[in-house]
């Protein structure tokens, strides 16, 4: 194959062993990097208990199922140039104060996420993408790519389903307590989006996202609308 020079069996074995060792070293290095850089704020292991208290005190989104959620290429890009996804932080309650008209998040309340070099971002993504405790949920997700009308999608996301009460479908519109969704399809796989929208509690029993109680067709419409938003 590809005009490789012929090697004897021992050479091949040695070559394979060297490759395996360097792969293991790379994986260990990648794991150590993530544990050193991310574990202070992010949960990297599945919690023993899912409690309200954990949600109230959580400093950053969980990463223990990162490999079931993210698109690797997005992770690598985002880690080099992080942009805020949750306008009010991971749990808004830690940051919200009463303003004159309504509750607000003071500008100086939220810390920026550290930025990493391309090499570091690749290293982090390598390990994060191995964290896949919910392969079964992803396997159950029956996403089907279908065309969507922007106008109908907007009406469905807003007026009919009320998602925009908490999520921003476009920058500057919608609610602030949940993650913005105009980049959702770029950062997460359609199977994750399908599964999470269909049953958020399967991923995090104490998430403050309600279960919208939708059938597969309705979930598909929302995921396809998220695709539409990411292509805008």
């Amino acid at each position: 194959m590809w005009g490789q020079p012929r090697r004897g069996p021992w050479t091949s074995l040695l070559f394979a062993a060297l490759l395996a060792t360097s792969g293991q070293a790379g994986a260990a290095d990648s794991k150590a990097f993530v544990e050193g850089e991310c574990a202070q704020c992010h949960t990297l292991e599945k919690p023993a208990e899912f409690t309200v208290e954990r949600m109230l005190n959580r400093e950053a989104p969980d990463l223990y199922y990162a490999g079931n959620k993210f698109r690797r290429e997005w992770l690598v890009e985002w880690l080099q140039e992080p942009k805020r996804i949750r306008p009010a932080g991971t749990y808004f309650g830690q940051n919200v104060v009463m303003g004159d008209e309504r509750d607000i998040v003071p500008d100086d309340k939220l810390e920026p996420h550290p930025a990493y070099s391309a090499e570091e971002a690749e290293k982090a993504a390598e390990y994060l993408m191995t964290l896949r405790p919910y392969d079964d949920l992803i396997a159950e997700a029956s996403y089907q790519e279908k065309p969507v009308s922007g106008m109908m999608g907007k009406m469905n996301f807003g007026k009919f389903k009320g998602c925009d009460a908490c999520h921003q479908p476009t920058p500057g519109t919608g609610g602030l307590s949940g993650p913005e969704v105009h980049t959702a399809f770029a950062r997460a796989t359609p199977e994750f989006l399908f599964s999470f929208i269909k049953n958020p509690q399967a991923w995090e029993p104490r998430t403050f996202m309600p279960n919208p109680g939708l059938n597969d067709g309705e979930v598909n419409k929302l995921v396809n609308y998220l695709r539409f938003l990411s292509e805008e």
Partner: peptide
């Protein structure tokens, strides 16, 4: 509180565009 406000008065964080 995300909608009903930290003191429950109905002016939560999400009410700017609701």
């Amino acid at each position: 509180t995300q909608c009903h406000g930290v003191n429950g008065d109905g002016w939560g964080l999400n009410t700017g565009d609701i």
